[in-house]
Simulated scan of single mutants.
Amino acid sequence: MRWNLRMKAAERGVWKSTELRRRLAEAGLEISAGKMSALWTGTPTSIRLDDLDIICHVLDCEPNELLIREPDAVAARRPAKGNAAAVGGQVITPRLGRNRTLPPA
């Protein structure tokens, strides 16, 4: 995923994180300066849905405009043929669906 907050903010005439932080506070979302800096300069590892809802409200956008899929990045992380992984020189193949216990009744 690519975080597109700065571009969406710029499209709405917001060029500084302090301006967005002020607008978010007016909408009821108080964000610390540190957290705002992290949201503004990088991709957050997590974000509360309530916070995302307010950000979208302030920027008049949808979540899919802030979170942009990157299918090529997903494909690059896919394991090589056969779902095998080498660990310490030893090839380990996952046993998907075999030797699993049944869920409790």
Rank of each mutant, 00 (worst) to 15 (best):
V14C: 13
V14G: 12
W15G: 13
K16S: 13
K16P: 09
S17H: 10
S17N: 09
S17L: 12
S17D: 08
E19I: 05
E19G: 08
L20V: 13
R21G: 15
R22M: 05
R22S: 07
R23C: 07
L24S: 02
L24W: 02
L24I: 03
E26S: 11
E26F: 08
E26Q: 09
A27C: 05
A27F: 01
G28L: 00
E30G: 13
E30M: 14
I31Q: 06
I31W: 03
I31T: 11
I31D: 01
S32M: 11
S32I: 12
A33M: 03
A33T: 04
A33H: 06
G34T: 01
G34Q: 01
G34D: 00
K35W: 15
M36A: 11
M36Q: 10
S37G: 11
L39W: 00
L39P: 00
L39D: 00
L39M: 00
T41K: 05
T41S: 06
T41D: 05
T41N: 05
G42K: 08
G42D: 06
G42A: 06
T43W: 03
T43G: 01
P44T: 11
P44C: 10
T45W: 02
T45F: 02
S46C: 06
S46H: 08
S46D: 09
I47T: 04
I47V: 08
L49R: 00
D50N: 07
D51E: 14
D51P: 14
D51N: 14
L52P: 11
I55K: 05
C56M: 09
C56W: 04
H57R: 03
H57V: 04
H57C: 06
H57Q: 10
V58D: 02
V58Y: 02
V58K: 00
L59A: 10
D60M: 03
D60V: 06
D60C: 00
D60S: 04
E62D: 07
P63C: 04
P63W: 03
P63N: 09
N64E: 02
E65N: 09
E65T: 07
L67H: 00
I68W: 02
R69V: 10
E70D: 12
E70H: 12
E70R: 12
P71S: 10
P71Q: 02
P71R: 04
P71W: 05
D72K: 10
V74Q: 07
A75W: 12
A75Q: 12
A76K: 15
A76Q: 15
A76F: 14
R77Q: 11
R77P: 04
R78N: 13
P79K: 12
P79H: 14
P79A: 12
P79N: 09
P79I: 11
A80C: 15
A80S: 15
A80K: 15
K81Y: 13
G82T: 02
G82L: 07
N83Y: 07
A84D: 12
A85G: 14
A86G: 14
A86K: 14
V87K: 03
G89H: 07
G89Y: 10
I92W: 01
I92S: 01
I92M: 03
